[in-house]
Design a protein around this nucleic acid. Sequence first.
RNA 1: GGGCUCGUAGCUCAGUUGGUUAGAGCGCGUCCCUGAUAAGGACGAGGUCAUUGGUUCGAAUCCAAUCGGGCCCA
Length: 953
Amino acid sequence: MSDKPNYKDTLNLPKTDFPMAAKLVENEPKRLEKWRELKLYERILESRKDAPLWVLHDGPPFANGDIHIGHLINKTLKDVFLRWHSLKGERTPYVPGWDCHGLPIEHKIQQELGPKLREMSTVEVRRRCFEYASKYATLQSSQFQRLGILGDWENPYLTMKPAYEASTLEVFARFVEAGLVYKQLKPVYWSIANQTALADAEIEYQDRDDMSIYVLFEIENRDALPSSLNAPAGEPVHLMIWTTTPWTLPANLAVAVAPQGNYQLVTFEKNGRRFHAVVVDQLVNRIAEAGKAQVVQVLGSAVGDTLTGVKYRHPFMDRVCPVVTADYVTFEDGTGLVHTAPGHGEDDYQTGRAYGLDIYCPVLANGRFDDTVPDWLRNQLVWDANEIIIRRLDELGVLYHQQTIRHSYPHDWRSKTPTIFRATEQWFIAVDKPFQAGGQESAGGSKSLRERALSAAKDQIRFVPEWGRARMTGMLESRPDWCISRQRAWGLPIPVFYNEQGEALLTPESVRAVARRFAEKGSDAWFTDSPAELLKDYDPGPKFPKDKLRKEKDIFDVWFESGSSWHAVLLGRSDLRYPADLYLEGSDQHRGWFQLSMLPALGATGQAPFKQVLTHGFVVKPDGRKVSKSDKEYVTATKEIETHGADLLRLWTCSVDYEGDIPTSPQVIREFGDKYRKIRNTLRYLLSNLYDFDPSADAVAEIPASSLDGWASAELDELIRQVSAAYDNYQLHRAFRLLHDFCAVQISAIYGNAMKDRLYCEKPDSPLRRRCQTVMHRMAVVLTKLLSPMLVFTADETWEHLRRAGEDADLPSVHLARAPQPAAEPPSEEQRREWELILKLRDDALLQLDALKKEAGLNKALDAELVFHVNDDAIRQKLQQYGPDLEDMAGAGHHAFAEASASESAVTVKVLDRRNDYQACARSWKRRPDVGQDPNYPDLSLRDAQAVAAMRS
RNA sequence: GGGCUCGUAGCUCAGUUGGUUAGAGCGCGUCCCUGAUAAGGACGAGGUCAUUGGUUCGAAUCCAAUCGGGCCCA
């Protein structure tokens, strides 16, 4: 220690227990415990029980595995918006949910059971699935809670709960009532090995060698051919098609052409034999080459559209079929004419429906042909049929060419065998059939689901971002009827019964009868109870004797269940309301949950289930590409939370523009820690300078505008306005940046830095110091509140270290507080210009200080003096009101005024090195002319001398 | 292949109805402070606004095409 007088003890140096290191990982769980004891969620709702409701309806994640980064982003966004609305004083109940039924869980259980599966009953398998889903719903619940998501975690909704199942059936009953449910054949992936339908998720693509063939179909009505083809009189004319699945030819019911394609009638010669065939112009040469044939001549051409009306005779089935047009016809392979079998392909099926063709499928569940085909094919396995059919076509003289190709082909992922497309009976909801919604005559009259959905998307829903509307509209325009049946065990049974004649019993009341049973016993009842028990109080009439009924085997598409959540949750709970204010999910849900919630809601009530739809993008690697689990950039949500704490992950989520892709990696998140620390340290600095400040006793009522305090106060008001607007518009990254930059610039670089001298050196209760503390205290309160939706843990921690007054005084948590309001109207234009001038002078001074540092070794701004050259009395008087701000804003020791020369602008600042002119005050380190003027304290400036004297008296 | 969408400094973001040398914060570099100290401050270097071609007196901003991503389909 030096023997110079040490004045450090006489300073009001910052003091606080608020630690610099957050130790989030260690401390967050303790705070969760505090909230639990406080019953924070219930308490917040209670404190807003008469306030307007704001309802966000949670989309149910699948109850499978740990939460991942997408869940983290989704739930964080929901929580932040809920908390913002709560901060604004609204009542924001939040009921989380889980999607529990479905294939992934059923598969998992099947894998676990292995061969034992065959010995188990459906009910036993379903019980395992139930346990599995319960386990993961519980696990994810705890992980979400660890993230700080506030909600009714004691009473979440699960789609497999009996009450929920019954509610889903009620939605179905309304569809039945509206007359929109029907049954029809539709091709699905079919595993011959397991004799079962397969979902998309059960398909894996493997390379396979198949025989591809070019086949000639003879045209039946030659007079329908466009004359521009110049078909030669008296000779047969053919359509040439190409297929890699010869076994589907018996089910051929049409040939599709591209409506805008340019087709030619070509005379080919192969092995000395001539024939005329229609093919697309750009493939003529490739066809000739492939078949080692010559193009003798091109007879004529015609556009695809003009070929409709042409009919051809099937080469070995007794039928005549049409030429149709389809958009999916391409000219990359084949002939430009596509063999169409509506019972054996998705595209073919759509075309078949469009043209009113049969959905004909002569293939049985065991992969063998039925009796509707010629003798020579009957009972043949489709794979064997390939060769038989090719041989037959050759014999008939209509096989132009055959060659082996290797292509990627869908396989059953369990048996590893190739699948086929096979038409089976499925249940549908009609989207184009007009109906009366839910008995509400006023709700749109007699319109179809599609019309209602399009109209709702057009002008009844707000989309964030706005382009969601276009995306949803496009999907609604093109979507086919909704196929709601699945051939699975783990799901909600479709409550249909069949009598001995195979007629279906499906009425609103039969569905409701089953729903009542499910509400009591859960949907397992479908597998344990008899039809008579399931229909207990319902009389289906003489056509359907209860003791002779057979139960449907199909279950619902899980989307029908999650898409009915508005009914089970929003209408089913008294604390919520229908429709919801907001649905918020990833942008993939335009097709998924958003659309498939809208359809049931419109079908049952005529009203969309949400007023606003918000979507967020997906996580990608820093280079913008898709991430996979094996990438080093893959982020494991649970691991990141354990490493950095939830608040950091939450803040990071709020910092990115979620409308687009979200670049992420462990490194990105780690480096983001700087932003958190900046905010935390700024809060800590504010708190540390408020240790002796009691807002209810020490606050200064008037903050003069012409002061840094006035400027800072106005900046804070502006921050409140802008952050509030950003939250209201769901622009979290904007809110984050405003808050962060306010900490970094307004407080840390400018205001907080400038105020050090007076905070530390003025006597504790000096007006100047108290005025600054008044502003800083408001800053701390405002920042804590505005940050509280994002930094739920840190803001609450800050709250505890903050001495509070008024309505905030007794609140045990910041999450019970109300949003901050600006203290004053926005400043006048004139006032704004005045502050701009002050900050401009500050910038000038800092540049000069930097120059002096480099040129003269002036390292401490306190050794410098700012001299303001002013040639305007009004400006001088204005500046003088700023007092010590004029030196403190640049960290200088002293300031003075001087006359400006006429050539200079109204006011300029000159920075002077005063190391050889003034003494430095031993206490404030400010170098100024008044040091030593008080004989009792020869080493102090007057201000410091008075401060020390006051404290020692 | 189709629908929707994105592409501004190393990173995260601003850039209103087209108008002076394209901004901020962070990071980085250099330096300062040591009374916010595993903190704080100052200054500085970074961009052919994905590319190309149009419209215009003038375009990051409007139009078209191309390239490269993403989501959903096929």
